[in-house]
Measured scan of single mutants.
Amino acid sequence: MSIQHFRVALIPFFAAFCLPVFAHPETLVKVKDAEDQLGARVGYIELDLNSGKILESFRPEERFPMMSTFKVLLCGAVLSRVDAGQEQLGRRIHYSQNDLVEYSPVTEKHLTDGMTVRELCSAAITMSDNTAANLLLTTIGGPKELTAFLHNMGDHVTRLDRWEPELNEAIPNDERDTTMPAAMATTLRKLLTGELLTLASRQQLIDWMEADKVAGPLLRSALPAGWFIADKSGAGERGSRGIIAALGPDGKPSRIVVIYTTGSQATMDERNRQIAEIGASLIKHW
């Protein structure tokens, strides 16, 4: 067993022997301040990774656009098919120029040779490549099948209805392509620590998230040296922004954090800054 596999296998073990965790309302004060600064709703939840206990939450059962955070769930569904012998990570998928959609920095470079399922998941999570996500959605049967996968996990809230990039439209009061912070946090925890996926697939999923290259201005910008984070960000229309993450000190994750916002007129930089400040408060009061 590799060191990384050992780390993920012992996530519940280490967490069980940690000192009790206590909620700190100071972080919620910052979440509410972010709402004021952005002029928009902000949803927040913080779960203990081992027990699933909610440590703090704000608007945990209000719907927010998922945006690209759905790509972690998508690759979880792909990995479940791999575990069941219905898919192979090494299978190569070929596609054409007509398949390319807006923001496809990886797939646009491989029109000639195609990409493997493993490479597509890596591109979808680490670079948020939209064509990679659409190609992977095709392998599982489309958005409705991802929703069905989530329902089978016990998540009857999260739903995907459309493809990239239309799913980022974020129309107010439109339930399409949305989740709730509580539902997303619980589902992410199941994917990373539950028995739904094999140990190898859980490790692969967290490795992809740990290698995320496009979430630097968010929670990662607030992390002290030595902290662990595996995350996936999302951005959408109407001032929408979000991030889902597993993080913790001492090089291992111990909490799940989900943050979503929508309806702001603020710039992307300002949305990023507010999420980073929430992260800084979380870490300060850990």
Rank of each mutant, 00 (worst) to 15 (best):
Cys121Asp: 00
Leu188Met: 11
Arg238Trp: 10
Leu135Gln: 07
Ala185Tyr: 00
His156Arg: 13
Ala225Asn: 15
Asp161Gln: 05
Leu167Tyr: 02
Leu247His: 01
Lys109Pro: 07
Ala185Asp: 00
Phe70Tyr: 05
Ile93Lys: 04
Asp174Arg: 03
Thr187Arg: 01
Ile206Thr: 14
Asn98Ser: 13
Thr126Val: 10
Asp99Arg: 07
Ala222Arg: 15
Ser233Tyr: 01
Lys71Glu: 00
Thr147Val: 11
Asp36Lys: 15
Arg241His: 04
Asp177His: 01
Val42Arg: 00
Glu195His: 14
Glu175Met: 14
Glu87Asp: 09
Leu223Phe: 05
Thr27Cys: 08
Ala170Pro: 08
Tyr44Gly: 02
Asn272Tyr: 02
Ala183Lys: 08
Asp129Asn: 00
Leu197Arg: 05
Glu35Lys: 03
Thr112Tyr: 15
Lys109Asp: 10
Pro165His: 05
Ile3Cys: 11
Asp155Arg: 00
Met66Trp: 01
Val214His: 06
Ala124Lys: 00
Gly141Tyr: 05
Ala182Cys: 13
Arg202Pro: 01
Ala15Pro: 07
Leu197Trp: 03
Asn173Asp: 14
Gly226Gln: 09
Gly234Gln: 01
Asp99Cys: 06
Ala84Glu: 12
Pro12Ile: 13
Leu191Trp: 05
Ile45Thr: 12
Pro249Met: 08
Lys109Ile: 11
Ser122Tyr: 14
Glu119Ser: 09
Ala225Ser: 13
Pro105Trp: 04
Glu195Gln: 13
Pro165Met: 07
Val257Gln: 01
Phe17Gly: 09
Gly248Lys: 02
Trp286Glu: 02
Ala245Cys: 10
Phe14Gln: 03
Val31Thr: 06
Gly216Ser: 09
Leu219Arg: 03
Ser221Asn: 11
Val8His: 15
Arg241Asp: 02
Ala9Tyr: 15
Leu167Pro: 04
Ser221Met: 11
Thr27Phe: 04
Ile54Glu: 11
Asn134Lys: 04
Glu270Ser: 11
Cys121Trp: 00
Val117Tyr: 03
Met180Ile: 12
Thr138His: 14
Leu150Ser: 06
Arg91Ile: 04
Lys32Arg: 14
Asp212Val: 04
Arg41Pro: 10
Ala182Ile: 15
Leu137Met: 11
Trp227Tyr: 07
Ile93Ser: 03
Leu111His: 09
Thr147Phe: 02
Ile3Val: 08
Leu196Cys: 14
Cys75His: 00
Tyr95Arg: 01
Asn50Pro: 15
Val8Asn: 15
Asn130Tyr: 05
Thr193Met: 14
Phe228Pro: 01
Lys190Ala: 13
Leu120His: 03
Ala124Glu: 01
Leu28Ile: 03
Pro60Ser: 13
Asp177Trp: 01
Glu270Ala: 12
Ser51Thr: 15
Leu247Met: 15
Ile93Ala: 04
Pro25Ala: 06
Ile244His: 01
Thr158Ser: 12
Ile140Ala: 07
Gly142Val: 01
Ile256Asp: 00
Gly141Arg: 06
Arg202His: 08
Glu270Trp: 07
